[in-house]
């Protein structure tokens, strides 16, 4: 599945897009990300599935677009 990274997260990961195997839920996805990119543990971010914000641990359907969103700072 495709993961999009924005803002500071894209800097930590070193790219704006990642291709990874499917993860069943957002907790397992986070565990993977924390292991691959330990600096992510120090920051707050939200996860969007198909452009909808999630909260808590939610299951990840197949063929969705995941996005990692640091705290918004528009305006």
């Amino acid at each position: 599945m495709k993961i999009l990274a924005f803002g500071k997260i894209a800097e930590i990961i070193g790219q704006e897009e990642l291709q990874v195997d499917n993860f069943p839920n957002t907790e397992i996805l986070k565990g993977y990300l924390y292991q691959q990119f330990p600096d992510l543990q120090k920051m707050k971010f939200s996860i969007a599935i198909d452009k909808k914000l999630t909260s808590g641990d939610v299951s990840i359907p197949m063929d969705v677009e995941i996005a990692l969103l640091p705290p918004f700072s528009g305006g």
Partner: peptide, 14 residues
């Protein structure tokens, strides 16, 4: 609108 734009839109300023 201004409050909601700043809080809810996925925009980042560097």
């Amino acid at each position: 609108l201004v409050e909601r734009i700043k809080k809810e839109l996925p925009i980042w300023g560097k």
